[in-house]
Amino acid sequence: MPDRREIDIEVMRYNPETDSEPYIQSFRVPFDEDTSVLMGLQYIKDHLDGSLTFRWSCRMAVCGSCGKMVNGVPKLSCKAFLRDYYPGKLRIEPLEHFPIVRDLAVDQTDFLEKLEAVKPWIIRKDEKPLSEGTYLQTPEEVSSYLQFSSCINCLLCYSACPQYGLDNSFTGPAALSLLHRYNADSRDEGKSERMPLVNSEEGVWGCTLVGYCSEVCPKQVDPAAAVNRGKVNSTMDYFLRFLTPRGGVDS
C-alpha cells in the first residue's frame, strides 16, 4: 500500500529585491520512508513554488552543498529524513551566521577566503622529483591527520559556532581543522607559514570550546579537537620560541 502521509514544511524566504527581511512560508509535502529533507524542498520547487532557491548537488552527503538549519539544527538536508520529524513539522532556514543571499542560499565568500588563508595543501621546502617516487607514510603518520581530512566544507560547523556568529573575524572550525590536517601531516613542511594565523586572536584563540561543531559534523571530523590541539601547539610555540629558534613545533 502506498505511503500517503503529508508533512508541513515551513521555509524561510527572502528576496533581496523586494524584501527588507526574511519571512516564513508554509508548504504541505507528501513523503514516504525514503524522502529526504532535500527531496521535500525539491518537491516544493517542482510542484508548489518554482521560485524557491536552495543549493544542492550530490544527494549523498559527499559534496557538502545542501546544508540547512532544520528545526534550528545544522543538517545536510540530503542526510536528514522527513519521516524523523513526522508527525511534527519542519522549519527550514538558511545556515546560521552567514548572510542570506536569497531564500535558503547563503553567501560563503567569507569562508572561502578563510579556507584559502590556512593554505590547505602540502607545502614542501624542496619538491622531490617524480623519479624518486611518492612520499611514504606509516599508518601511524596517516592516522594523526586522517579524520581531519574528511571535511567536505559543508559549513554546518560554522552554523554551530556562536563565536563565529558573534565575531566572524574568527577563522572558524572547518578552516582550522584543515589547517591542523596539514600541520599534522608528516609530508608537510609548511607549519611555520601557518602558525602566525594559528597564534593570532583570529586563529585558535577565538574558540571557547562550545563543542557543538563536533556534534553537528556529518563526517566525524571533530573540529573542536583540531582547534584545541591547535591551542596546545600555539601555547608551545608561544613559550618555546624563547628556547628554540623555530618555536619547537616545526620539527
Binding site: 527572502y14 533581496p16 529585491e17 524584501d19 527581511e21 526574511p22 534550528g72 539544527v73 546560521e96 551566521h97 548572510p99 542570506i100 543571499v101 553567501d107 556562536p162 556568529g165 558573534l166 571557547t208 562550545v210 563543542g211 557543538y212 556534534e215
Partner: peptide
Amino acid sequence: ARNTYVRPMSGWYRRNPHFLAYMLRE
C-alpha cells in the same frame, strides 16, 4: 554588491539546548 540579510545574534544561547548547557558551564 549583494543586498544580503544578516540575522541578529541576540539571545543565541536560548536557541539550542547545547548552547544553554555551554552557558551553564561558563
